[in-house]
């Protein structure tokens, strides 16, 4: 894990969205900071990515006005912005606590599967049955 630290895009309730930034800024932050991507280009990229989830209308909202699904998608996109991202989702059902199974999460991951190298989900063993594609170790 340590050797992949720079590539890991963590998604966790303990790593919240930045509250004084709007959605597009939260997602673009890594590109703006690490790759020095110009603001206009970064915004265009984020809007294109939000379109994959049909969420362009939340681009200028703050995290407090998002639903849990929207928040999850934004966190996912933010994590996917890490170069050669290895996405690690920490107990997704804590973020998506109204979801009965992993369908929404798996759909969301599939829509951006070109943006990350690997994805790992850390979950309690008693939640195993909630996963549709169950290949847990």
């Amino acid at each position: 894990m340590m050797e992949h630290q720079h590539y890991s895009g963590l998604i966790s309730l303990d790593i919240p969205l930045i509250s004084n930034l709007d959605v597009w800024n939260n997602i673009a932050l890594i590109k703006l900071y690490k790759e020095n991507m110009p603001k206009r280009e970064a915004r265009k990229l984020v809007l294109k990515l939000l379109h994959r989830y049909h969420l362009e209308d939340i681009a200028y909202k703050r995290s407090t006005s998002l639903t849990e699904e929207q928040k999850f998608c934004v966190m996912l996109l933010r994590a996917a912005m890490v170069h050669e991202a290895i996405i690690v989702i920490d107990r997704p059902f804590i973020i998506l606590h109204n979801s009965k199974d992993s369908r929404f999460m798996e759909d969301a991951l599939e829509k951006i599967d070109d943006l990350y190298k690997q994805c790992h989900i850390l979950e309690y063993i008693w939640n195993k049955s909630r996963y549709i594609n169950n290949d847990a170790e």
Binding site: H6, G9, L10, D14, I15, P16, L17, I18, S19, L29, I30, Y33, K34, R78, V82
Partner: peptide
């Protein structure tokens, strides 16, 4: 809100 930690996690 642990947002400072968020920045640290993403190496900002």
């Amino acid at each position: 809100n642990q947002e400072i930690k968020t920045l640290e996690v993403f190496h900002i």
